[in-house]
Design a protein around this nucleic acid. Structure first.
Lengths: 159, 159
DNA sequence: CTTGATTCCATTGACATCCATGAATTCCCG
DNA sequence: CGGGAATTCATGGATGTCAATGGAATCAAG
């Protein structure tokens, strides 16, 4: 479970600590480290544990998960962009150059919890992102609630 | 199950006891602590156990729970604002600064039970909130009864 | 030998853990 | 039934530990 926001320093070797809270949720994982994937369309990195990566790979094998061949190829590309980065003895990782480039991260970065995944941002990029989100939220009449179940929708066109 | 109202002190380190009654309902939880999320539009914090947070995260992974991309992003923001706070040996938590700020809590706070969740308020803010609620209630002809089932509604106008 | 990466060690400041107190409640046994 | 003992809780404070961070040492190549 990944929540909250944690800002950390990136040292001159590209190392950054992973929040102790995140590490403890990853403790059960067989792999001691995390997975980072550039988010398309955002200057951010998506992060999670190795276990989730394996689940994603499994879903890829299921012919029902993605409908067409193009989708499948595009999803595989995510695996190509994924980087598995191990913890060092003190719970740090080194951010691969490509990922740092994608997110525009230089000397600080902020972890943002998102449930089963988290994101890594350049702090200012994240602030800008939040700004945009809040603007969008203001256009809504009601706030979006946390839901446990899919909303009941009226019968759609038959699948 | 969270009920009743409990007022407690916040010490200079930001610590506050969690009602023993609440702790016992959280006892089965794997995580020894609670989750706090600022309520949008109210100077209050929503609280519940880690188990519920996991259910919410699971719902987030289900492609059917939220229909469009914007909704999804806005909901993830709730996780970013969420704070997981562990109990100390004596059943206390420390209120993170951001949450204290949001709720305007300084040296006392009141827990308000709400079924599967509870809320934390600055005592005076809660009184004001109750005031507003009662005013609204007075405009109604009938009181709102406790219901066990969703009320059947006539087909709404199509969104 | 030089460069780049990985492991190891050192510092410091926050915070989790531990301990103490008093009030209120429950328990138990006469 | 009653009163004393034993818990349980809320609360305050002290201190020991660990997380975040920087730098040195070791290792692996080119």
């Amino acid at each position: 479970m990944f929540t909250a926001e944690f800002e950390f320093k990136v040292d001159r070797k590209g190392r950054i600590s992973v929040p102790a809270d995140y590490r403890s949720t990853l403790a059960h994982d067989s792999y001691s480290g995390i997975v980072l994937i550039p988010v398309e369309g955002e200057r951010a990195l998506e992060g999670f544990g190795n276990e989730r990566l394996e689940s994603l790979a499994k879903a890829l094998d299921d012919p029902d998960t993605y409908d067409d061949e193009d989708e499948l190829e595009l999803v595989k590309q995510h695996f190509a962009k994924a980087r598995r980065v191990p913890f060092d003895g003190d719970g740090r990782i080194v951010l691969p150059v490509e990922t740092r480039k994608h997110a525009g991260i230089t000397d600080t970065a902020i972890y943002v919890g998102g449930g089963n995944t988290f994101r890594l941002w350049h702090p200012e990029a994240y602030e800008a992102h939040k700004e945009r989100l809040e603007a969008k939220a203001r256009t809504r009449t009601k706030p979006v609630p946390l839901r446990l179940k899919p909303r009941k929708r009226k019968p759609e066109a038959e699948p």
